[in-house]
Design a protein around this nucleic acid. Structure first.
Lengths: 106, 106
DNA sequence: CACACATATTAGGTATTGCTAATATGATAG
DNA sequence: CTATCATATTAGCAATACCTAATATGTGTG
């Protein structure tokens, strides 16, 4: 069994738990993009996207790299890319069932 | 590219985004358990755990099965188990960096 | 059927998260 | 060094998620 800090795990996974963040990840899955490209691609507002990017970065999911006046964001590494792919694979299977159920925790 | 419903994906991933839910998943990763076993294992309160179980079930991550007066919860399938394992693998790598960063979205 | 035990649900308050709008920082070009 | 463009940060409000305590449902047993 691997030793992974529990709080860190929670923090990491928290990164995947919001619609906008998933959109961002899908959007930069194949190639890094600048903030403004992302904003345009997913039709978001700059401040909001910037906050979510900070969140994703803080969670260790993406990395940013400044180039001139642009900042390029991309997935942290190949493993994260594989994880995103795996989400889709697992979901293929789960899909039919989840559709029918409405409850979040409340 | 796989076709996965976006909202469903968000919903599914939401399941992994809370400390207690991660604990539950770790707790039932290898073998299914009853609610009361889970409550005891992670030192939670019955109502709260029950709500998180409903959430995980609604997200398609776990399944429940009634047996007599007990309900056994276990991971939905082997793929979900692999996903959990993969979290740990990816985290091994990310770990050093995330530790230093504090920001959630706020 | 009444009781005990396991689990689920509800209600309501509290805390967290996320949004928008405004402003600040930081980089390049002229 | 000023103006402009890209991005980040902040503040305050709105929405959502979460927790606890109470109650309900459901299942087996005497």
């Amino acid at each position: 069994m691997l030793k992974v800090d529990h709080d860190m795990k929670v923090k990491f996974l928290h990164g995947f738990s919001h619609k906008t963040r998933i959109q961002i990840l899908e959007c930069i899955k194949e190639e890094e993009k600048t903030v403004s490209q992302i904003v345009e691609d997913i039709q978001g507002n700059q401040s909001n996207i910037s906050q979510h990017l900070a969140c994703l970065k803080g969670c260790g999911i993406i990395v940013g790299r400044q180039e001139g006046k642009y900042v390029y964001y991309g997935l942290r590494n190949q493993q994260v890319r594989e994880l995103l792919t795996m989400f889709d694979v697992v979901l293929e299977d789960v899909e039919s069932d989840v559709a029918t159920c409405e409850n979040h925790i409340e």
